[in-house]
Every structure is written in C-alpha cells, then in structure tokens.
Simulated assay, not measured.
Amino acid sequence: MKTNRRNFLFGAAALLLAPALAGCQRRVPAALTTPLEIDARTTCDLDGMPLVDYPGPKAQLFYAGQSAPVYFCDTVELFHTLLAPEQVRTVAAVFVQDMGKTDWEQPRGHWFDASTGFYVLGSKRQGSMGPSIASFSRQADADTFVTQWGGRRLRYAEIKRDMVDLSGGALHDSKM
C-alpha cells in the first residue's frame, strides 16, 4: 500500500511540475545572449531584403543552440513568426530596436529584450513592409510616439496573431 501511495505522490508531483519545467525549456533568458549589430550585408531571413536599406524597427531572434540570429526587416514579421502555430523551436532570445533612441529612417543599434518592451500598433509610420509595430524600451517614449503618429500602445504579451498579418505590405507593393 505504501508503494502505491508513494508512486501516486511522485506521479502527481511530476504532473504539477511538468508545465513549469516545459516553460523553462521554451525560453532562455535574453541576458545570456547578446544582440548582434546589422551591417550592409545583413539580410532578412524571410525575404532576403537588406536591413539597412529600409526604415522602421528591425528584430533578431536567437533559437536555442544557434549562435547566429534570424533577422527580420520588420517587427510585424518577427511577431508573425513567433506567433505562428507551427512555431515549435525553442527561442533563446528576441531583440528589437528601441525607436525612442534610434532614427526611424535609418535605425542602427539600440537593441533590447523584446519581451520587456512597449509596442505601438496602428500608427501612421511605415516600416520596410508597410504598416509596422513600433518598439520602445520605455513607456513614455511609446506614449510620445502615439501622440505624434497615432496607434495604440501594447505590451509584448498583448500582441496577438491576428494583429500581425503579412498580407498588407508585400502583396500590395506595386514596385516589387
């Protein structure tokens, strides 16, 4: 009888701990990864566009076990990838540019952990693929941006899949 009770308790503990342990495995703290700077040769992993040629915030995503990031020429592409139902790879870190500290037309540097940011959706500012999600490390900068350019401020976890439709920019660009 003691063996059955002990097995039951171990099984129950394993069931309770499994979700917590699984969550730990899905994301490694961003502090263990350092963002890399983009240059003239850095291209978007989704479409091959050179990142330095286009306005708006850029992003980089590190998958566990890889030393080089996957680059995105727009934050919409980043969130579209992260929120895709088929996305099962373990994410080590995600970085975006702080648009409160860098130039919108030629953004350089000022990377921060995306999960800590404030985002503006629906502004009048255009990124490389049309409408963009502006990224900020400080709420005050995001609020100032909303006052000037419109849109609404969100936190990282508030951005949902239906907000990051990729059919807007590239499909309607007659110059491509």
Rank of each mutant, 00 (worst) to 15 (best):
A13C: 08
A13T: 08
A14G: 12
A14F: 12
L15K: 00
L15H: 01
L17S: 11
A18K: 01
P19M: 07
A20T: 11
A20C: 12
A20W: 14
L21N: 00
L21Y: 05
A22G: 06
A22I: 13
G23W: 15
Q25T: 13
R26Q: 13
R26N: 12
V28C: 00
V28F: 05
P29M: 09
P29I: 01
P29Y: 05
P29G: 09
P29K: 07
P29R: 06
A31I: 14
L32P: 00
T34P: 00
T34M: 11
P35W: 07
L36D: 07
E37M: 13
I38Y: 11
D39Y: 06
D39C: 05
A40K: 13
R41E: 14
R41M: 13
R41K: 14
R41T: 14
R41I: 05
T42S: 14
T43S: 11
T43P: 01
T43G: 03
D45P: 02
D45S: 15
D45I: 01
L46P: 02
G48C: 09
G48P: 09
M49V: 11
M49T: 12
M49N: 07
P50F: 06
L51D: 06
L51Q: 09
V52D: 13
D53V: 00
Y54K: 08
P55T: 05
P55E: 06
G56E: 08
P57H: 03
P57T: 08
K58H: 15
K58L: 10
A59M: 04
A59L: 02
F62S: 02
F62P: 01
F62G: 02
A64H: 11
Q66W: 13
P69K: 08
V70C: 04
V70I: 11
V70H: 09
C73L: 10
T75A: 10
V76Y: 01
E77Y: 14
E77T: 06
L78Q: 04
F79L: 02
H80Y: 05
T81N: 11
L82G: 05
E86G: 04
Q87L: 01
Q87A: 02
T90Y: 10
A92V: 01
V94I: 15
V94Y: 03
V94T: 15
V96R: 09
V96D: 10
D98H: 03
D98W: 10
M99Y: 00
M99Q: 07
G100T: 07
G100R: 09
K101A: 15
Q106W: 05
Q106C: 04
H110N: 15
F112D: 05
D113W: 07
A114I: 00
S115H: 13
T116C: 02
G117Q: 12
F118S: 05
V120T: 09
V120F: 08
V120R: 02
V120C: 08
V120Y: 09
V120Q: 10
L121E: 12
R125T: 06
R125F: 08
